[in-house]
Design a protein around this nucleic acid. Structure first.
Lengths: 369, 369
DNA sequence: CGTTACTCCGTAAACGTTTACGATGGTGTC
DNA sequence: GACACCATCGTAAACGTTTACGGAGTAACG
């Protein structure tokens, strides 16, 4: 009655031992009556395992709740099942949206993500973060680099694993390849919408020129105008904040230079300038048309609901993850950028609804009464 | 001329070999002319190493750019230098703010963070996520659980490492301890502000009752009112969205039940209801006072600028990380919750500026003219 | 029946650390 | 001068996997 059908269980730890040590591949092996090598094979879907044995091992694995020790795996294979995300610490709309979406698709593809955020000065912090990520054992790194300086730091940094940068309109280098949404197109969409509405005097409340997004949206605005045979109007460069937009718009009002239409580089920017106008009795869209960029939550309930352009972060994340995984595995993948869409609401209207034609043809005198 | 002062370098890989293999502890050892044990000792600040040797080893480490292999360390010590963050996938203000802040303080304390987000149904996904985090080798887990169901799933789940939950007003269990900001206080602050302004008819546009935040903010509103000897007014339970608030407010207008003052459970909620009022010529704060909750970016440029309450996510993150680290190390730490602050702007005004007294004392007839 | 080939499985070594233990040399004490 | 003691260092084993290799069976084939 000694050796039963299950061979060498006796000389091993009892399956339901009181101690909560995590079961190892050896525990599984002894209980299933096979060698650890066989267990490893079923774990890795290797051939050379009979169906029956595979079944049995799988059953034991489920029974005792075995889970593969990632550290051990990583140690011996030196490849990993996690990818690193490097982001700037800013809680801004774009970066955060991208970050969340990225985590989502990574998880669905079976990768854990470890994220690190960096701060100025980037030169040091970026290299340090890349290193940390590296010896955490990530297989690849995606960096969300909205600001130009950060991207530069990434370009100058060295890293053993593939690095992909999400940066609108930045170029790729041998070490670092780039992917992004086609934000220039987004800006063109916005501007073209204004053009289609009959506006000819279209200003731009730009974002920060330290940001790729700011640069590229401005470029789109310009290009769109030129393509339509129009000369670009006023372009004010700001910092994305409502505050800047508010004060700048106030200035415009004082100088009686309020344009017919404005493409705001972000919804927050739009928010600020709309308030400045509202306080001075200039109505949107009756007196001035505004279109934003981002479609932040609530922008459909601004006063008025904001016409804006929406980026598809999920699609962006999906694609860029695909691209990174491709790079990690040496595959080659499609890299056409995602296209944003225009969402039309109520903040931009037909141009000649009023008599205003000149560059400052706003009926002055505050208050709608 | 064979054996020089540096003993066994010859039989090892050349220091500047062309291949880019990462240097190991052995590389350091052979170059420094000591055994790997000694290197390990200096790495871990162990005693039993002479100052001179330590110096030399440190120098070599720096020279060849040695970095400790975390997988190997984790494998043998089974403790780790990373902490896991579990979050719901929602890009909502509170959770995201907490997440970013958490990552920040973790990094500053020398921990990497690996984040996983879960979706409904929580029962399965939470346990799976906890497991994944566990065998990623995290030393502890912080879960950002704004919604009640998710918290329940966490309570029911099992996990070897300490789990801390950030959930407003939820209670701790033996397995899972809880930490949060004192949101009830926040709600009281908001309500009290309205009371101080002389309002007696104070309604609440609540958030979702599936969220702790929704529940706790409502509780604060109620309690504050009772403490002041007032009977709580209308309480509408929504879903945080501007849309819901907009439509609900519209309903109120139609039924002529617009209250004197409203405590909105979130800034987005406030945004929606303010628009509904604006469309109907009901002015904020002249006709109805509104205070929000969150202080989202741009709320200072709403029309009107929103009086609201701000949470200190950085402080929250700092404290909760402290608490988790304490649990991991068996320490005991202070756990008094962080307090939010009221930020007064322009959306709430003195009560009796108009004759309106009755529950529906709004001058009907749209348009400000 | 002997050979070959194939299927399935066990074994050993390696991955880069940490930890416990043992070895060595020097210094002090009686 | 013998002894113990301390400081410093080297060595072996272990952590839980994967991978390369080899060996035992079995089936096919002459």
């Amino acid at each position: 009655m000694a050796g039963m059908t299950v061979p060498r269980e006796a000389n091993e730890r009892l399956p339901d031992a009181p101690l909560r040590r995590k079961p190892t591949i050896n525990d599984v092996a002894s209980i299933a009556g096979v060698s650890f090598g066989t267990v490893s094979r079923v774990l890795n879907d290797a051939p050379d395992v009979s169906a029956a044995t595979r079944q049995r091992v799988l059953q034991v694995i489920k029974d005792i709740g075995y889970r593969r020790n990632r550290a051990a795996t990583a140690l011996v294979t030196s490849r990993s099942t996690s990818i690193g995300i490097l982001s700037d610490g800013s809680p801004r709309f774009g970066p955060v949206g991208t970050l969340m979406a990225l985590e989502n698709v990574a998880r669905k593809k079976g990768y854990a993500t470890t994220v690190i955020s960096v701060e100025q000065p980037y030169e040091e912090s970026v290299q340090a973060a890349l290193d940390t990520l590296d010896d955490t054992g990530v297989g690849g790194i995606i960096v969300i680099a909205p600001v130009v300086d950060m991207a530069a730091a990434v370009w100058n940094a060295s890293c053993r694993v593939p690095v992909e940068m999400i940066a609108a309109g930045a170029s790729s280098t041998p070490n670092v390849f780039t992917y992004s949404e086609n934000q220039e197109l987004g800006a063109r969409l916005a501007t073209q919408h204004l053009i289609d509405l009959g506006h000819t005097d279209i200003a731009h409340f730009a974002g920060s020129m330290d940001w790729f997004d700011g640069r590229v949206r401005k470029r789109g605005w310009e290009a769109s105008l030129r393509d339509a045979g129009l000369t670009p109007g006023l372009c004010l460069e700001g910092d994305w904040s409502p505050r800047w937009a508010y004060e700048t718009a106030l200035q415009l009002v004082r100088e009686e230079k309020v344009p017919q239409a404005i493409f705001a580089a972000s919804d927050h920017t739009a928010l600020g300038l709309i308030r400045a106008f509202a306080e001075n009795g200039i109505r949107v869209p009756d007196d001035v048309s505004v279109v934003g960029f981002d479609d932040i939550e609530g922008s459909d309930y601004f006063l008025p609901p904001l016409t804006t352009v929406r980026q598809d972060f999920t699609a962006l994340a999906l694609m860029s993850m695909e691209v990174l995984l491709g790079a990690m595995e040496g595959r080659d993948v499609d890299r056409t950028p995602i296209e944003p869409t225009l969402v039309v609401r109520a903040s931009a209207a037909q141009a000649n609804s009023r008599g205003s034609k000149g560059p400052s043809g706003i009926s002055q005198g505050a208050g709608p009464e």
